[in-house]
Each structure stands twice: as structure tokens, then as C-alpha cells.
């Protein structure tokens, strides 16, 4: 693989998604609501359907991503370096072993769901809880669709992707969120910001790192 070709992916992009009702995974929504393996009664199932119909029109699913080279700096305590972020996270190192690049992405449903849920918290708390579960599945769906788009991009270069890994998972500290959002210009690009307490606002949002490895090496390191 030539250097020029590798450069291809050192880019960035924006993606907007339109979600349809049929894509929302009911089983997952039910699971978020506490139903593990069991099916809710008709009233709750109907409430879930109503929540989906209310939520979809108010969400604006937007994502931004950017490729960065990944360096593993060998020191007394080895650390990872990408996008100006340095971390000693062992869990992330394991996730990224065999990768030469990472994709950073941020995705959000925009402020609409937050407003809708706040409204329901005042008027119908049960609806708020159900909207919350639907929104959780919707943002996962957005991540999955973005992931698929990136997988295809990477595959064109003979590369494969690792499962996405978010700040706050394992020992990958939440504090990297600041650099994370800044390097993606997430505020300007998709309206995603951080609070003092490092919560994302709008709250129905996800940031993650995806490792990019060459097919053969990735397969080997997974053995």
C-alpha cells in the first residue's frame, strides 16, 4: 500500500441520517426499559410506538468524523497518541492493538429529544422514561449506520474496523472528551458541546474511537 493511498483516509466528513420508525429495534427499547427477555404488555408496547412517532420528527441525527494516525509510544509505561490525545488506557490499547489509524467520531440527535423528554418529565413521567429508551436506541442506530459507512470506506483500502470505544469505558478517561470534541469541531459542525461536568449537551450523543487495522494484521492480532 502506498503512502499516497494511505493519505486518502486521513480526512474528515459529516454525515446526517434520517431514521425511520421500522429501524428502531423494539427489543432493545424494551430491554432499556428493564424487560430482559420478556415482552411488555400491550399498553406499554403501544406507549413505545407512540414515543417513536413523537421522537423521530424532532431529532436531527448528525455526525462528524475524522481519521488520525495512531502511534504507540514505547516508554516505561507505553501510551497511545492520536489526534493530540495521549492516553495510557490499557483497555483502549487492547482494543486498538494492531491498528495503525483511528477514526474519532461524534454523533448527536440534537436538542429536540432533550426538549421532548423534559416536557414529558413534567406531564407524563412514564412517557419520559419510554422516550429516553427510544432515544437511546436511536443514537445507537445512528452510530451503527455511521460505523457501516466507515467500514465500507475502510474496506476499499483493505482495512477493517475495531468495535467503537467511547471515553469513559474501562480505564479510557472521560476527561479526553474536551480534546475529542475540539479536534472534531463538534460544536460548530453538529452542535455538540460539553458541560463543566463533562456531560454532553445535547445529551443524546455519542463520541467514540474506532481502530483501523490492515486486514491481515488485524486478523492475526485477534487470534
Amino acid at each position: 500500500m502506498t503512502a499516497a493511498k494511505e493519505d486518502f483516509r486521513l480526512g474528515c466528513g459529516r454525515a446526517d441520517f434520517r431514521l425511520e420508525s421500522k429501524e428502531i429495534r423494539r427489543q432493545d427499547v424494551w430491554r432499556y426499559l428493564g424487560y430482559r427477555g420478556s415482552v411488555p404488555d400491550a399498553a406499554v408496547r403501544e406507549a413505545v410506538e407512540e414515543a417513536i412517532e413523537k421522537l423521530l420528527p424532532v431529532l436531527e441525527a448528525r455526525a462528524v468524523y475524522r481519521f488520525f494516525p495512531l502511534e504507540i509510544i514505547q516508554a516505561e509505561e507505553p501510551f497511545l497518541s492520536f489526534a493530540g490525545i495521549r492516553t495510557k488506557s490499557r483497555d483502549l490499547s487492547k482494543n486498538l492493538s494492531g491498528c495503525h489509524e483511528v477514526i474519532l467520531f461524534a454523533a448527536t440527535l440534537g436538542p429536540g429529544p432533550d426538549r421532548l423528554i423534559r416536557r414529558a418529565e413534567v406531564s407524563h413521567i412514564s412517557e419520559a422514561v419510554i422516550l429516553q429508551a427510544v432515544a437511546a436506541d436511536a443514537i445507537e442506530l445512528v452510530c451503527d449506520r455511521l460505523n457501516e459507512k466507515l467500514r465500507l470506506l475502510a474496506a476499499r483500502e483493505g482495512c477493517v474496523l475495531r468495535p467503537r470505544y467511547s471515553p469513559g469505558y474501562g480505564d479510557f478517561p472521560l476527561e479526553v472528551q474536551r480534546e475529542f470534541l475540539q479536534v472534531l469541531s463538534a460544536g460548530k459542525e453538529i452542535g455538540l458541546t460539553l458541560t463543566e461536568g463533562l456531560l454532553m449537551a445535547p445529551s443524546k450523543s455519542v463520541t467514540a474511537v474506532i481502530g483501523v487495522g490492515r486486514e491481515r494484521e488485524a486478523a492475526e492480532s485477534e487470534d
Binding site: P111, D114, R115, R118, G187, K188, G191, T193, L194, T195, E196, G197, L199, A201, P202
Partner: peptide, 11 residues
């Protein structure tokens, strides 16, 4: 923009 979201959406 400040890069922050104003309350009540943000803090």
C-alpha cells in the same frame, strides 16, 4: 459561538 450550549439545554 462560545462552544457551549446555554441552559436549559446545556449548562
Amino acid at each position: 459561538p462560545t462552544g457551549k450550549l446555554l441552559a436549559p439545554l446545556g449548562d
